[in-house]
Simulated assay, not measured.
Amino acid sequence: MSDIGIYARVSTADQDPQRQLDELRESVEDSYDDPEIHAYADIISGTDTGRGEEYQRLREDIESDVLDVVVVHELSRLSRLGAGEIHEFLEFCLTNETGVRDLEVGLEISLDDDLVDRAVSQLIAGVMGDLARVEHKQKLRRIQSGIDAAQAAGQWTGRPPAGFAVEGGYLQINADEFLTVRRALERVELGSTYAEAADGTPIAESTLRNLHDDRRNLYFHAEAEDGRLQAAVEELEPLPELEVPTEHDLPDEDIRAIVRDEIGRLQQ
């Protein structure tokens, strides 16, 4: 009986590594007699150069002499964990008397190979890694180019600010959320702490602090340096500055009255 490690890696939480694992498991069961299969799977962003927890566990099991062979769908996946990772991984496996198989191109490096065969296999694996890195960089450039083009056309490409939604690629005001943010910011202007102002709202204290520091004029005056935000709020009338009292102990009913007046002005 052989102990076989299968390793899968996907780039986002929306992808499921199970498909890769199932294909690897099927191949292993067809190729080995009564194999003991050890599965490892990571979800790592394509821009992340770190090693995943499961990849680290795989290496630990290789070093502990748990595995006879490691089977992967594509060795090029490993190269995205850092330059030279394929070469280093192969050396690591062979040093620890563990073979390696790549199902995509049928590459197999076995402990039974002579030194020449191993050297050729490692050379092929290194070229695969170089090609994978070039492809990855090109993909990132294409993605960035698409983002730049969308932004140039006035579209919003990231997460919308609080109080806004993205419809058809463009920012639209979410009236309820916008007013909730404004009410919380008004409480800050009237002397409440960020924690007090955020209490009872879906807005995190840290988010409220950032909005007050960076986008105060957007919520109080419908003014923004970003043209996409400005276009989304252009139908709003600029709002006057709040007159912050010198004593921050206004009764709650007075605060509510001020907020109601300002909300009414915004909704006109």
Rank of each mutant, 00 (worst) to 15 (best):
M1G: 15
S2L: 04
I4R: 13
G5Q: 02
I6N: 13
R19K: 11
L21E: 05
L24N: 09
E26Q: 06
D30Y: 04
D33E: 08
D34G: 03
P35F: 01
E36H: 08
A41L: 09
S45T: 04
G50D: 03
R51G: 00
G52A: 11
E53K: 14
Y55A: 04
R57G: 11
L58S: 11
E63W: 03
E63R: 15
V66H: 06
L67Y: 05
L75I: 15
R80Y: 01
R80M: 12
L81T: 14
F89L: 12
E91T: 14
E91S: 12
L103H: 04
E104C: 12
G106P: 10
E108K: 07
I109K: 00
L115M: 09
V116Y: 10
R118S: 08
L123F: 08
I124W: 02
A125L: 03
V127E: 00
M128D: 01
D130A: 06
V134D: 13
V134P: 00
E135D: 15
H136D: 14
H136A: 14
H136W: 14
H136N: 15
K137M: 12
Q138L: 11
K139Y: 15
S145R: 15
G146T: 09
A150K: 10
G154V: 02
W156T: 02
P160V: 05
P160M: 07
G163L: 08
V166Q: 09
G169D: 03
N174P: 03
A175P: 07
A175V: 13
A175Y: 08
F178C: 07
F178Q: 13
V181R: 00
L185A: 05
L185G: 06
R187I: 08
G191V: 08
G191R: 04
S192V: 03
T193W: 03
A195N: 08
E196Y: 06
E196G: 11
A198E: 07
A198M: 06
P202K: 02
E205A: 12
T207V: 05
R209S: 13
N210F: 00
D213E: 15
D214P: 03
Y219N: 05
D226S: 07
D226L: 05
L229S: 05
L229Y: 02
Q230H: 12
A231H: 10
A232H: 10
E235L: 13
E243P: 04
P245G: 05
H248R: 14
D249I: 02
R256Q: 13
R256N: 14
A257R: 11
V259M: 08
E262Y: 15
I263K: 05
G264F: 09
